[in-house]
Design a binder for these strands. Structure first.
Lengths: 169, 169
DNA sequence: GCTTTAAGTCAGTCTTGTTGACTTACCACT
DNA sequence: AGTGGTAAGTCAACAAGACTGACTTAAAGC
């Protein structure tokens, strides 16, 4: 039981040899890519005394305006107390604004102020540039594969959280 | 300047429309996939009082036996003090063993003990299972695209760190 | 009216990262 | 043989960001 390699027959009738070696390199690929991918915004955040947690909150508030606090907690997968710390700062600093829920007045609907939206663009700019460069150089088929595998890596419950317009299989 | 979308002509002569929407969903894809991907080992680690930092150290020591401390620091991208804390525990707990360098006796060459290797397998097992499932269901072309895009997302300097056997383009 | 829920807070803990300063042992070069 | 640089290790202090647990306030749902 030295070489635990396994062969699978794919629906498209091609043989897939998934060696431990290949699986391991994927683990590293994800580690390094994710680290570099988050590195650029991390530097911008540090200048303003924020951290990655602020970025994540800003990202989801930007793209799901009027999200509730509970909704944001679920997206991020953190506790109320953990989110509250960064949210408190963002609200106090005027980057995030709260609005009382119309149907449920207990809810606080979150959205970005103009200043918050400006920061969001600054933060996501290097990530978009990085993706654009990678996507362009890799080509559409590679991009489709990239997205499909990422989709299949995540938990079934998580999958529904990705706002994913293009009709994926 | 509302819709900052951009079109690029790929070398393979196909048009790629990279909308902000598409780029944004990739950001979320990476976030969610990475989170779920690391979730399983995180649970196992927590039982033993370890964290993700221990897992990373164990991973690289396993797959690059006789790596030096400086080498490991470079791979992980952390400071000596930060690594030392987790390394100290792993050595004290008998999971990692040190060996004085042959050519340079200042170096401490790191490798896993049997017990360390056992833990490594336990930790990487759920990740390998997850990848195997995703790879198998997505198919070889998707896997190739996945790997290619991840490669191109990371920094040029980082790329050399991935032990990547299969002859990638 | 009573219970549940959404949000917010206070307090304490833990992991993991950082700086900065310093020691010990060893290598390399003059 | 001596000197300077390097590899490893340590101490101390600090910060971000996660956690648990307990508790309050206000509003919703019955």
């Amino acid at each position: 039981m030295k070489q635990t390699s396994s062969a699978h027959r794919h629906s498209s009738d091609k043989l897939l040899f998934l060696t431990d070696e290949q699986l391991r390199s994927a683990i590293e690929l994800l580690f390094f890519a994710y680290r570099d991918f988050t590195g650029d915004p991390d530097r911008i955040l540090a200048e303003r005394g924020y951290g990655r947690a602020h970025h994540r909150a800003i990202h989801f508030i930007k793209h799901r305006p009027d999200i509730t606090v509970a909704g944001l907690i679920e997206m991020l997968g953190v506790t109320k107390q953990s989110l509250n710390r960064v949210l408190r700062q963002l609200i106090d600093d005027g980057l995030v604004v709260q609005k009382v829920g119309e149907t449920d007045r207990r809810q606080r609907l979150l959205s970005l102020s103009e200043e918050g939206a400006t920061l969001e663009v600054q933060l996501s700019q290097p990530q978009r540039d990085r993706l654009r460069q990678a996507y362009t150089s890799a080509g559409p088929e590679a991009v489709a594969g990239f997205r499909e595998v990422l989709h299949k890596i995540m938990n079934d419950g998580t999958r529904a959280m990705v706002a994913d317009k293009p009709g994926r299989k």
